[in-house]
Design a protein around this nucleic acid. Structure first.
Length: 567
RNA sequence: UGAGGCAUCGCCAAGCGGUAAGGCAACGGACUCUGACUCCGUUAUUCCAAGGUUCGAAUCCUUGUGCCUCAGCCA
């Protein structure tokens, strides 16, 4: 997709962050410059919640003619991997955003961060502490009780400088010492109670290797990385609201040149799925799904494989808006965005998912003719194609009822329906097997209705899809439903696990469907509308002999609703 | 019994003292060679609650209530 398509998608919908930025611009803050960043930690795959943040940050930059950096917040080597930094870059690009040459890593700043820490120590604003993790927890106090100052809090500047250098030089064991900010042990903000700024941790970093054995904490590295990059508006999610005083403290006390402003918004929650990295990782590692890109996963990789388009995701991000109230967006909103996008663009295909045989008794046995089918009624420029029609066809089992219910206007004994693009067809009899299941529906066709029209103008209510049995190709279809059965899988009884809400029917594999033969020439990722059933795409699992389709989302089905109610 | 946030239709969400946008969902109806799409219509006398200020309040004040976040040497 081109840059232009992104701009065309912009709605300009207002939100409180844009208001803040406009005000800052009016007050000439930061020389009227806007710089944002998307700062993932490379410890997992991106999900749809990240997509909201990506669209927000890159969108703000575009709207205000600023820049948006991609920065990896890689300050905890024990959790981070190159596999993740690659997938993240791939996903951001796929969504349609470009960081140009502004790809950064917090690990690029380790030396400068160290210097900033020294500044803090010199000012008497940081100290080396010998407390163990357990001791520190005790000294920290509780939510309602102030903490106590560390006995190491009053070491001299010289001693702190010396100790901090020794920490860096590897003269202490992991966890033996920390560098802490000297702030306020009785603050209502727990994070201000002399927070740890550096810890000793001997693990190999995916970029800096073993060059360092001390690593800066998020609360120290993040504000300074923002400042180093000249970020003006540091947008993050609500759970960091409590960290903002520390963010400001670090930027101010370190006397950083640029003083970015942290703004928090509500992260996305989507119904019928989970969004936490811990849970997504568990679903992958314990094989509840096939991988990070399982089409049922809310990861970017998963929804891409499922068949979602970047346009539909961006549209979704626009529609849900940005605010500060906790939210749970209906997944129907996402599905709507995909349908709207695909309805406009998707090639139509006749595909029969639950086939039953139709024999046209009065059609010559050895004859094959070709009828013309519109590729996309929403877009004439997509042209037409030829479809083979012959005596034996497949239709959808649900498109025939031996004893039709009220309101049913598809095929039934004695009734006439239109086989889309082909002929008017009337059912004359059915053949069943011993169990009573219908094996063959015998029909007749009206040769004067070729193309699906009749001269006499008789009205036909039902139009159904079909494929020629001799010409269709067999394929596999994977039909997906929500990963969880509950709107909020985390809404649990005392101590229960969210996995009890996993939907056992989230994947249904249909081994043999019949599809128009031209799909054999298509490639993984290609997207279609299967007439009257849904949007599908070709899965990468496709092999020469076996085309695999993923159902991205079904078409809306008001008859299914009515029939469901009557049942 | 600490601190920081948030409360507008089933779900998102505008609204910034002048008399409740929009989208999704739902429900009617029209149209239809996709029971899709599209179109048209319906759905908050009311904005967490109660007081107050005002000619006038979802918007200002007061007092409550509910929900979220924080006690990692994670981010």
């Amino acid at each position: 997709m081109s840059e232009n398509s992104i701009i065309d998608n912009e709605t300009g919908k207002s939100n409180f962050i844009k208001e803040i930025i406009k005000e800052d611009l009016n007050n000439n803050k930061n020389d009227s410059r806007v710089a944002t960043r998307f700062p993932p930690e490379p410890n997992g795959y991106l999900h749809i919640g990240h997509a909201k943040s990506i669209c927000l940050n890159f969108g703000l930059a575009r709207e205000f003619k600023g820049t948006c950096n991609l920065r990896f917040d890689d300050t905890n080597p024990s959790k981070e991997e190159t596999e993740y930094v690659d997938s993240i870059q791939n996903d951001v690009k796929w969504l349609g955003f470009d960081w140009d040459d502004r790809l950064y890593y917090a690990s690029d700043y380790y030396e400068r961060l160290y210097e900033f820490a020294v500044v803090l120590i010199r000012k008497g604003k940081a100290f080396v502490c010998d407390l163990t993790a357990d001791q520190m927890r005790e000294y920290r106090g509780t939510l309602t009780r102030p903490g106590q100052e560390s006995p190491f809090r009053n070491r001299s500047v010289e001693e702190n400088i010396d100790l901090f250098r020794k920490m860096r030089n590897g003269e202490f064991k992991d966890g033996e010492k920390t560098l802490r900010g000297k702030i306020d042990m009785s603050s209502g903000y727990i994070v201000m109670r002399d927070p740890v700024l550096y810890r000793i941790q001997r693990s190999t970093h995916h970029r800096t290797g073993d060059a360092w054995c001390i690593y800066p904490m998020y609360d120290f590295a993040h504000p300074l990385s923002d400042s180093i990059e000249g970020i003006t508006h540091s947008v993050c999610t609500l759970e960091f609201e409590n960290n903002r005083p520390l963010y400001d403290w670090v930027v101010n006390e370190c006397e950083a040149v640029h003083k970015p402003r942290q703004i928090e918004f509500a992260r996305l929650n989507l119904s019928f799925t989970v969004m936490s990295k811990r849970k997504l990782l568990e679903l992958v590692t314990k094989n509840y799904v096939s991988g990070w890109d399982d089409p049922r996963m809310p990861t970017i990789a998963g929804i891409r494989r499922r068949g979602y388009t970047p346009e539909s995701i961006r549209d979704f991000a626009d529609r849900i808006g940005v605010a500060k109230a906790d939210n749970m967006v209906d997944i129907a909103m996402l599905e709507h965005c995909l349908r709207e996008d695909m309805n406009r663009r998707a090639q139509r295909v006749m595909a029969v998912i639950d086939p039953v045989k139709v024999i046209i008794d009065n059609y010559p046995e050895d004859k094959t003719e070709h009828v013309e089918a519109v590729n996309n009624p929403e877009d004439e420029s997509m042209g037409k194609r030829e479809m083979p029609f012959s005596r034996e066809l497949w239709i959808e089992r649900s498109d025939f009822m031996e004893i039709p219910v009220k309101g049913y206007f598809r095929l039934a004994p004695g009734t006439e329906v239109r086989f889309k693009h082909a002929y008017y067809i009337k059912c004359v009899s059915v053949e069943k097997d011993d169990s009573g299941e219908i094996k063959v529906i015998h029909c007749t066709y009206d040769p004067d209705t070729r193309g699906g029209w009749s001269q006499d103008g008789r009205k036909i209510r039902g139009t159904i899809h079909w494929v020629s049995a001799a010409h269709a190709v067999e394929a596999e279809a994977r039909l997906y439903e929500h990963l969880f059965i509950k709107e909020n899988p985390d809404d649990l009884e005392d101590g229960a696990d969210y996995k009890i809400n996993l939907n056992p029917d989230s994947l249904k594999v249909i081994k043999k469907i019949y599809v128009e033969a031209f799909v054999e020439k298509c490639s993984p990722g290609d997207k279609f509308q299967f007439d009257r059933t849904g949007y599908f795409c070709i899965d990468p699992d496709t092999t020469k002999g076996n085309i695999v389709f993923n159902r991205t989302v079904p078409l809306k089905d008001s008859w299914g609703k009515i029939a469901g109610k009557n049942a």
